[in-house]
Amino acid sequence: MDIANFAEASATLGHYLIVSGLLFGIGLMAVLLRRNIIILFMGVEMMLNAANLSLVAFSRFHPVGGGPAVDSQVFLFFIITVAAAEVAIGLAIIVALYRAKQTMHVEDLDSLRF
């Protein structure tokens, strides 16, 4: 592979989508395997960011009117905002739970059983 070719080479849509899918998968693994509620939250954040990456990649590779498709970037704003709101609420509930129960583990959430 010569230098000129290397300078020219750039990633394709497929690259980005696969990477975003892998990020989503790692987030999913975090949710499924870890028991710490805060880490579960981090996993969910990763999943949301994977979706964001796909959106940006799609907007770059399907341009509208010369520039990237801005619709998806606007959507991304909404996602970031909503995620931030969700995190705020979630952490508030976690703090309240920690005050009541001194735990951070999903397995200790056992008052609701029949």
Binding site: A11, L13, L17, F24, L28, R60
Partner: peptide, 22 residues
């Protein structure tokens, strides 16, 4: 999930082309 995702990706048209100029 990964299987479905990869299948969806490789079936997209023009998925292995570089991005158009802006």
């Amino acid at each position: 999930f990964v299987y479905a995702m990869v299948k969806a990706v490789i079936n997209l048209p023009e998925v292995w082309q570089t991005a158009p100029k802006l």
